[in-house]
Structure formats: structure tokens, C-alpha cells
Design a protein around this nucleic acid. Structure first.
Length: 167
DNA sequence: GAGCGAGCAAAAG
DNA sequence: CTTTTGCTCGCTC
């Protein structure tokens, strides 16, 4: 049993998808909605959708809401580590793909880890915004790429830079 | 096993 | 400063 709601954001309509009390996806992909039940009235929403909605509302108003939202990652073990590490990047901060590669390397106790593999994993980030993959940029400080296009990445980074951070 | 990146660093123009 | 070149590795088919 899956439910979803639409959230109108500065980077377009976001679809928030939930299953059994766990956050499944935050996406702009409209074609995903065929899998889910009809959208519910707000008062009947599962808590996880209300939490995510509030989180996004706060986020786009420059408030770093540090709530934990239960979520389920349906992806490879490698991607999970990358996404978990990415989630730890604080509001308003940026790091490079290479640096994230170092952290993942440590987590997985590997000898080598390429930045390219990190980019590959982030490209399939199922939880846009909540996992702030837009805070990961190239080593030379240029933005690199973004699944929704560079325009969206710049809007998100501008949003974090200009807002007063409320802890 | 081959091909594909949201990359990197060094070297060249 | 910008562009090119070689190298990288986990994922997917």
C-alpha cells in the first residue's frame, strides 16, 4: 500500500511517495505515480508524509529542520553508503565528490574509491532534497552535474546560501 | 566482459 | 584562462 502527495517547490512539482510508514521516494518523475493510490486529504495523510511535507516547506524557507524521517532505500549496498554519507552534509555546506569518496572508502574499508562511482550513485538518488546530493560539487568548485539539470542545482545552492539558517 | 558517467589531475593550447 | 588526455571504478546489460 503506497500513498503519495504533490509538493509545489521552486524546482518544480515534487512527488513524495510513502509505503508502510516509510519514505520511499522524493521525485519529479510524474510517471511514478501510476503505482500509488489516489492522493489523500491532508488530515488523513500518514505521519511520514506530513513530516516530509513540513521538512520541505521549512527547507525552502531556509530553515534546517533536523528531523529524522523513516525511509527505505531500495538500492545496492554501495549506493546506500554513499547516500547515508551524503545525508550528513550540513545545511549550507558543500564538499567534493572526491572527499565523499574518501568517507565511503573508509566506511566500506576499501583501498580505493573513485569519485566517478560516487557521481554514479548520486545520479540515482531516490530522496531529492532530504538526501542533499546538490551539496556535492567537483573538486575545482564548479557545480558538476545534477539529475534534474544544473538549473535546479543552482536554485537549491542559492537557496541555502541566501537564507538565514535557523537551528 | 564491454560500455557508461553528476570526476580528477596533469599537461597542453 | 579553457580544452584535451589518460586514468578511475562501481553499476548495468
Amino acid at each position: 500500500m503506497k500513498d503519495y502527495i504533490k509538493f509545489y517547490s521552486p524546482i518544480g512539482e515534487l512527488y513524495i511517495i510513502e509505503e508502510n510508514g516509510q519514505l520511499l521516494e522524493i521525485t519529479t518523475d510524474q510517471s511514478h505515480t501510476w503505482r500509488v493510490q489516489d492522493a489523500l486529504a491532508y488530515k488523513d495523510l500518514p505521519d511520514v508524509l506530513k513530516m516530509t511535507c513540513r521538512f520541505l516547506h521549512n527547507y525552502f524557507n531556509g530553515i534546517n529542520d533536523l528531523i529524522y524521517i523513516p525511509y527505505k532505500l531500495d538500492c545496492s549496498p554501495f549506493q546506500k553508503v554513499v547516500l547515508e554519507e551524503c545525508r550528513k552534509i550540513p545545511f549550507g555546506h558543500t564538499i567534493s565528490y572526491g572527499e565523499l569518496a574518501q568517507r565511503v572508502k573508509f566506511q566500506m574499508m576499501k583501498d580505493d574509491m573513485s569519485a566517478q562511482a560516487i557521481g554514479n550513485a548520486l545520479n540515482h538518488n531516490p530522496l531529492l532534497i532530504y538526501i542533499p546530493c546538490h551539496r556535492v560539487i567537483r573538486g575545482d568548485k564548479t557545480p558538476g552535474g545534477y539529475a534534474l539539470g544544473l538549473k535546479a542545482k543552482k536554485i537549491l545552492l542559492e537557496n541555502e546560501r541566501n537564507q538565514e539558517v535557523i537551528w
